[in-house]
């Protein structure tokens, strides 16, 4: 099961009803190809960091999907839609899994600066079992 984040920017010219219609349409496209929506986050209007098609604002929207297949169809639709200024689809499950593993391997511990060791042998066998919980993401 793969997790995908889909972030796209709707043109600010699109009226609100049409925007919601488009959003549901895109969601439908993804769900038709076997994806299930996990979270949806409308960011609303945001200033763009640089103008796109002479617009300085955009209507951001975020989907998080879980799917076994790919989101190629959604990607294609988004690319062809002239209402979408930009979109990006990022697969996150691998990175998140890796991050979790790393967090488990290096649980959060206080950074205590060890005092300069006078007897290095005394410090050597000191392997402290990781006691603390890993950092909550």
């Amino acid at each position: 099961m793969r997790t995908y984040e889909v972030l796209f920017i709707l043109s600010p010219q699109v009226p609100e009803e049409e925007a919601t219609a488009l959003v549901t349409e895109f969601r439908g496209v993804a769900e038709k190809t076997g994806a299930t929506l996990k979270t949806e986050e409308p960011w609303g209007r945001r200033r763009l960091a640089y103008p796109i098609h002479k617009f300085n604002e955009g209507n951001y929207h975020l989907f998080v999907f879980e799917s076994d297949g790919s989101l190629a169809e959604l990607d294609r639709r988004m690319r062809n839609s002239d209402r979408i200024l930009r979109h990006i689809i990022v697969r996150t499950d691998l990175d998140l899994k890796r991050a979790e593993k790393l967090a488990k391997r290096n649980p959060k511990k206080e950074r205590v600066r060890p005092a300069p060791a006078f007897t290095p042998e005394a410090n050597a066998p000191e392997i402290t079992p990781a006691a603390e919980e890993p950092a909550p993401a």
Partner: peptide, 18 residues
């Protein structure tokens, strides 16, 4: 390296300027 990827992605969707 991860930060670099994140910044480049953020640039694509105009969250951060190029």
């Amino acid at each position: 390296r991860k930060l670099q990827n994140a910044i480049k992605r953020a640039r694509i969707v105009a969250l951060i300027p190029f």
